[in-house]
Design a protein around this nucleic acid. Structure first.
Lengths: 177, 177
DNA sequence: TCACAGTGCTTTGAATTCGAACATATACGG
DNA sequence: CCGTATATGTTCGAATTCAAAGCACTGTGA
């Protein structure tokens, strides 16, 4: 990688290079296409949405229980939307919700055995779809670079804005961890 | 609590590398974050949604008129959803809809002067947001690679079945119910 | 202890989205 | 020229999403 990083900016605030705009638009378009296809597969094979899949996956990889806010934040989701989805998942027996022993207002969420089973049942198909659509036309080098790039972008954005509970406080400082 | 793990081996040995899964997840997460922020800016400065911005941008760059299907397909959108949005945009005086001289069932869409004006008014802010969130942490090399990678992915997916009019022609006969 | 601000989650209401069904228009085969 | 199948766009109903308002709990200072 030649360090072509331009000094901050020549003219911050004005037109972008065609290269920049093109990269941005094609990024959004490709992800949109991919997400639609993935949603199809998940709905067909497991009767769940992509959001529900993300929630289950996150819970499956979590050490123990998670609070609603932690879960919403991890999935890039509004808290009210999460309440709705958690209601559906609980009714379907895929997760459990219960009070926290430490904090009476918090709700702790965990995945159930059925939830894990469903996740395991859709995962192979999910992997197959992403493989054939995303990984197929890419080399290992591409993938490494893609992961590296998007990780930097993600980390950069995570430092900037508040997420799920936006206009409630000026700065979410130490949100604990 | 109790681990009722149903043997993780499941059926197949086509698990993805952690690198692949990581690249995939971080890609979706970063784009999701970016889209949320972009939507905020567009709503604040121009009172339009990201979808509406995409529609206007596409129409602005189109040579002449576009049909509804062409527009929906370009933006990765369902046709019924496009009908709804086109109604809003037309009512706001940002686009026009009219019949096609060649094909009586087609509807031709074009952007108006007001539409172009609105687009021009939100574009600087839009560019500024994407610059500060997406381009800032990337080098020119990164950007080139990103555009190249996503273009290949997009083209690969575009060769597969289309989006907006999926299950409409495929089974040529019998049981339609 | 009480008042008050801050945090966690849910409820509510409006907007948006999609798929299926519908109404027309076009293309094709007999 | 009919009859069937295909293409375009819209309407309809259901599901999902978000922001704002509301309720419940926590922690701090007086």
């Amino acid at each position: 990688m030649t360090d072509t990083r331009p000094a901050p900016d020549a003219d911050a605030g004005q037109a972008l290079d065609p290269q920049q705009l093109g990269a941005y638009f094609v990024l959004m378009e490709a992800v949109s296409l991919l997400q639609h296809q993935v949603e199809q597969q998940l709905r067909t094979e497991g009767d769940i949405s992509y959001v529900q899949f993300q929630l289950l996956a996150r819970l499956a990889h979590a050490p123990g229980h998670l609070t609603m806010t932690q879960l919403a934040d991890g999935v890039v989701y509004s808290r009210s939307g999460l309440t709705y989805q958690a209601g559906l998942l609980e009714k379907a027996g895929l997760i459990t919700r219960g009070p926290s022993p430490d904090d009476e207002r918090a709700t702790l969420v965990a995945i159930t055995g059925n939830g894990r089973a469903l996740l395991d049942s859709v995962l192979p198909g999910h992997i197959q779809v992403t493989r054939s659509l995303l990984f197929d036309p890419l080399t290992g080098d591409d993938l490494h670079h893609l992961g590296d790039i998007m990780t930097r972008v993600r980390d950069h954005m995570r430092t900037q804005p508040p997420r799920s509970a936006a206009p409630r406080k000026r700065r979410p400082s130490s949100t604990q961890a």
